[in-house]
Design a protein around this nucleic acid. Structure first.
Lengths: 346, 346
DNA sequence: CTGAAAGCGCTTACAG
DNA sequence: CTGAAAGCGCTTACAG
């Protein structure tokens, strides 16, 4: 390994001078130093630099599942910010498991300057350890019970659930089922509350056999939809609380040869790149993805700035938006004459 | 920051003893040490450990685009391997750009023990620098011109192109277009060669106006399909050389109200989670994704094993598989009576 | 089993 | 502008 001493010796200066040159300071013999660096193929040791400076120039990012297109887009948004900075991203999946999240965070706090986390559950205790380690932490997509003291980039999940409910109500549905995500996550709990609550206010109760809880993974959307179809009286509309469960629901409906929206309307949460191309094109509650990653990374880098005063936590809450496509219609599938239908395609 | 000296002082031993305890060696006063660690909340400094040991326990992974479901699955496969190891993954996108890849690799070699790369082009020079830095390198998905000396996990792209061609030939197509990926990448070049070459052998020429080259991104699939549709005599079948360009092609065909496969058949490369749910369900050449990530990471960890003899490069080439769905049919859309159609759904 | 000491490769006040 | 020196937090031969 070529060290700064080797460069110094070859250039006829001291290691300190080489170090100054590397940091961009004005140095007399910069030509000789540059030549020595080139000839020797010298690169400074990141470990040694970290040890001295106390900074790793690394950001830890922990998401439940990188193959979920939502999280892939969020991570890409984060990276678009770090591209112009000296920071790199250390990525890990928690697989929706608090234990796995714990393990990975315990390791990460030793290696990174800051962490962006989409916690596996709201009850998670771990992030407090993160704070003990004095590593800045930003939440994205999901919050923590009592997490108000941390920076966060979230969306209005309650409002999104409401939008889904209002849409189905406006179509005239009264037998409405919800496939929620894990209820001890922010999005799982709030999307359900917004959805069920809005229906209740309109006098539409969601009975227990329609009020189902999955785990944000495709398989649970599939299984729970099958269980809905096996009821003596299946619902006329289903709300699936994330993209993967919506896909599972769609597969189940296809497999059981259910006409959508003729027999059952389906509305999802989170749009998909293929959303407009599906059979039928999906009606969804959409929200910013890439942008959430950008915002979260910016919040974190601000905390890492030595000039940051350690002020109050920034809590960003973005709006959701209904995208009406062809997977929802009035019960029975016939358009309600009383209503002008705004359809959007992409 | 709590250091090993603080722990040592509190436990009444020397730092060396604490260090030995941390490495799992037998130590007399392990109870006092463990207590001191717990009370002080001590975590060893990763930077200091790296500096001493020369190992970072970090793997660099560089892919063109993490939002491409193929690469997301590959990365997840890699992580499934590192989960039981002390290694973490440093992830970066190259955005299909050699320059960006260069920048990121120059930084990565200082921070990681090894690198897995899907190079932006076959002509890339950078990986040789990586080798200069003495950092083991494994290719995944894409190879390098003269990359035979590196470990690699690839698929039979040429064979995949052939499968696509044979499928369209068996349906009776003679006006066949190809939307290839960048031709200075392994998959871009070989998929096209396999496809066009197989057609040529069967006496079907692909004229220049049908022989188009995109960049693996959705937009190019969209644009190139529009250009095909604007021809005086459009093709009756299109082969799109990756998942994103296939989606672009599908969107263009929808927007132009083309009946698939009635007017034009579409076959893609790489299956999508939504493949069976699309309008129409997509016929594709499929290949392992998660598994490629697993294999690539295993090859790399083997190189990192001190016991590795530095033997010959391992070159793994996996097979592709045709999945027939509803987006392909004989020209005119009527099933060929001479042929038994094997359909597969998922 | 344990401790004192050297050293991993850098950076940075401190003198000059 | 430059160099000698100390030190970041560990690990590991070397004695004992």
């Amino acid at each position: 390994m070529v060290t700064i001493h080797d460069v110094a010796a070859r250039a006829g200066v001291s290691p300190a001078t080489v170090s100054r040159f590397l940091r961009g300071q004005r140095v007399r013999s910069y030509e000789a130093i540059q030549a020595a660096i080139d000839e020797l193929g010298y690169w400074p040791s990141a470990a040694a630099q970290s040890l001295k400076s106390g900074r790793t120039n690394t950001i830890g990012v922990v998401v439940p599942d990188i193959t979920n297109p939502y999280f892939a887009a969020v991570v890409k948004g984060m990276e678009s910010v770090t591209r112009t900075e000296p920071y790199r991203i250390l990525l890990a999946n928690s697989d929706e498991s608090s234990e796995q999240e714990d393990d990975v965070l315990a390791d990460l706090v030793r290696r990174v300057d800051g962490i962006i986390l989409a916690p596996a559950t709201e009850q998670d205790e771990t992030p407090l350890h993160v704070r003990d380690a004095d590593v800045p932490l930003v939440f994205v997509d999901r919050d923590l019970a009592g997490g108000e003291r941390f920076d966060a980039v979230l969306v209005d999940n309650d409002g999104g659930g409401r939008q889904a409910a209002e849409h189905l109500l406006s179509l005239g549905h009264t037998r409405v089922a919800a496939i929620s995500g894990t209820l001890d996550t922010t999005p799982g709990r709030l999307r359900r509350e917004g959805f069920v609550g809005t229906l209740a206010k309109a006098g539409v109760e969601v009975p227990p056999e329609y009020d189902l809880v999955g785990d944000f993974k495709e398989h649970s959307g599939y299984q729970l939809t099958l269980s809905l179809l096996s009821l003596p009286e299946p619902p006329t509309a289903i709300f699936a609380a994330n993209n993967l469960m919506t896909l599972g629901a769609l597969k189940a409906l296809h497999d059981m040869r259910i006409d959508i929206p003729g027999q059952i309307s389906l509305i999802g949460f989170d749009d998909l790149d293929t959303g407009p191309l599906l059979r039928p094109p999906l009606t969804v509650v959409d929200r910013p993805m890439f942008e959430q990653g950008v915002l979260a990374m910016r919040l974190l880098l601000r905390r890492l700035d030595p000039g940051d005063g350690g002020g109050l936590a920034s809590r960003v809450v973005l709006d959701t938006k209904l995208i009406e496509r062809a997977s929802t219609a009035p019960p029975g599938g016939h358009p309600s004459p009383a209503r002008t239908r705004k359809t959007r395609s992409r």
